[in-house]
Design a protein around this nucleic acid. Structure first.
Lengths: 355, 355
DNA sequence: TAGTGCTGTGAGAACGATCTCACATGGTCC
DNA sequence: GGACCATGTGAGATCGTTCTCACAGCACTA
């Protein structure tokens, strides 16, 4: 026997007016006499009225909820931070977010999209999408879609990070410290779906920026120093991938003096490999992370390319909201700048470095 | 001009039957002729019908949503894992979860509870509550409440972890390795609200188990080795707290040979302090973490008391569901067992150890 | 005086489901 | 042959909002 909480009708009865008048007071629209307004406001307080969002949603066709589909919130603090930023901005605008983890699996993604449609979310944010079909499905239901860190398709918004600038800053930092044997551990573009788009992916941006920087510095490219992988690992964690790649790098007869890692979690695995190989960081090896999530918690604290996670989430929600309010708005791409945070894991190239 | 997606009525028209018949087919209840059933099923497919959860919820007074109120999902992977476990079990039962972060702030908690009530969630799970008033508010609205890791009040469920067993296992492990100067860094019971309950808190359980173990081993208790703090730090991260406590411990003239840390993140800070103090782990210092979240990602990989995070979430949801289905069910307390995972951060007491 | 506009209010129709009731059939039992 | 039950279907109320429309009073204008 669930107690029914107070409804609009209860307020109306209490105040001796009609539902319509109460609605007008609550939405602050239309004409309401001053004395009536006060009576209604008193009644709202006295019966403890709280609007029923489901009923409102049924009528207005707005759930005041947005869906956020991401890879897996437990796999990398990056996702948790972005999700939190979206949520924060959503709350500030009267919205709630529904999270869904797709684990890079297109069936799970599809399943999530269906849950979102059922629950009539007003827009969907992806960090990141797997399959163009799920975006198409949402667009067919006329839902605004915002992609974080993925190039947009013709009718979705996108919030990007300037990965070129990020890697350039990292490379400039290392080159300036005298490093020439710089390894790059990143994501394999082939393993990352960029649904429905032929533009350069973030993985390609990062890789090419690394290669260009070497070229400009007159350093020959050594394919042994370029390691590409999954990098958002679900079964065993990205650190395992970093560990494996680092082991291989340290086994080279001319091992790198510096490494740029695709994310901080991955860098954590590199630190473990360095420890086991008795390489001191930064004395024997410099290490730059990416994301700036756990960089400050590792030992030594990591120099890392900081992603503007808070802005990423905020902007994504703002774009979603703009499209909710005006569905015909033109698709937009917003690019945000990363910044290099220098800590204790990078230092001058060791003098005794080979070559 | 938002496209209306197909409704029950559309299906009924398409199949040439009434809404009631379609409803019967979909809910598989009541009598429906075989031929009619097939016509309806075909119509459902052909119009692409998807039930509208808001409309259903309005009628049934069930939102098929539960609220999960936690401290802050970005502050410790523990929260993300528990939230994920709740979500997984919820999904398996046709539910979705709404997350809310209260940041240990009772106003924010209250705000979250109000959002939950507005959206008519069917139950609320706390990891952890701050204020007894918000629980009372939910109970007044007849919502089932489940508390994770907090003693239950008279009309809520609780899922606990046997912290006594956890600390006992850690202590037994260290004592067996020959350690006698064992420090304890944990949460200060005074800083942790256990709303409306006078029973021993998890912080007290851990502390007293540590003290008892020492006593039983005939080791005098040294207050210098007991450090209590906030331990879920929001501004600067729990690792900072671990770092500070560890610095102080290392400055003692008779420093500990082993430390038990209240959580893995905190242990990360201890590792940094050890590194700076040129103490090798585990050669000079043994370290045991708690939670087993990032333990495997740190260097060296941490011995840690693993919390059954998946079970915690699963059980919490099951209790919530039981109360949703039968509101008059008796409140239950379920206690789950932790387990000690031994890795590379614990070793024999150093022979040159003082005293 | 009739028309026009502003202010203030209420009746009642949506929104899309669920669910109670009523009402057909046709067969079985006494 | 009437009572009873199992089967199959539809009409329409209901959940708690929002929102359109109608209308009443009053002041002002032409």
């Amino acid at each position: 026997m669930k107690l029914r909480s107070a409804t609009l009708m209860d307020v109306a009865r209490e105040a001796g007016v009609s539902k319509a008048t109460v609605a007008r007071v609550l939405s602050a629209s239309g004409y309401v006499g001053e004395e009536t307004r006060q009576r209604v406001e008193a009644a709202v307080k006295s019966v403890g009225y709280r609007p029923n969002v489901m009923a409102r949603g049924l009528r207005t066709q707005r759930s005041l909820t947005i869906g956020h589909l991401l890879i897996e919130i437990t796999s990398n603090p990056f996702f948790a931070h972005v999700a939190r930023a979206v949520e924060r901005e959503a709350l500030a605008n009267g919205y709630k977010t529904f999270l869904f983890n797709h684990n890079k699996n297109s069936e799970q993604e599809r399943f999530g999209v269906e849950r979102f449609i059922e629950r009539q979310v007003d827009a969907v944010i992806f960090t990141y999408p797997v399959d163009a079909a799920s975006i198409a499905m949402l667009r067919a239901a006329d839902m605004p879609v915002v992609q974080i860190e993925r190039q947009r398709t013709s009718d979705t918004h996108a919030v990007l990070v300037d990965n070129v600038a990020g890697i350039e800053a990292a490379m400039a930092h290392l080159l300036q410290l005298g490093h020439r044997r710089i390894a790059f551990i990143g994501g394999d573009p082939a393993l990352f779906p960029h649904p429905g788009v032929r533009a350069r992916s973030l993985e390609e941006d990062r890789l090419h920026t690394y290669l260009d920087a070497l070229r400009r510095a007159g350093i020959a490219i050594d394919p042994d120093l370029v390691r590409l992988g999954e990098y958002v690992r679900l079964e065993d964690g990205s650190d395992v991938e970093g560990y494996g790649h680092a082991k291989a790098l340290f086994a080279l007869k001319d091992r790198p003096t510096a490494i740029i890692a695709g994310c901080d979690v991955l860098a954590g695995g590199i630190l473990r490999a360095a420890y086991e190989a008795h390489l001191r960081v930064p004395d024997d090896l410099s290490l730059v992370g990416f994301d700036d999530t756990i960089a400050g918690q590792l030992t030594p604290r990591l120099t890392s390319v900081a992603q503007p996670m808070a802005d990423l989430g905020l902007t994504a929600f703002q774009l979603a909201l703009a499209s909710i309010e005006d569905p015909d708005i033109a698709p937009r791409t917003v690019t945000l700048a990363p910044s290099l945070v220098i800590r204790d894991s990078t230092g001058p190239v060791p003098v005794r470095a080979t070559r």
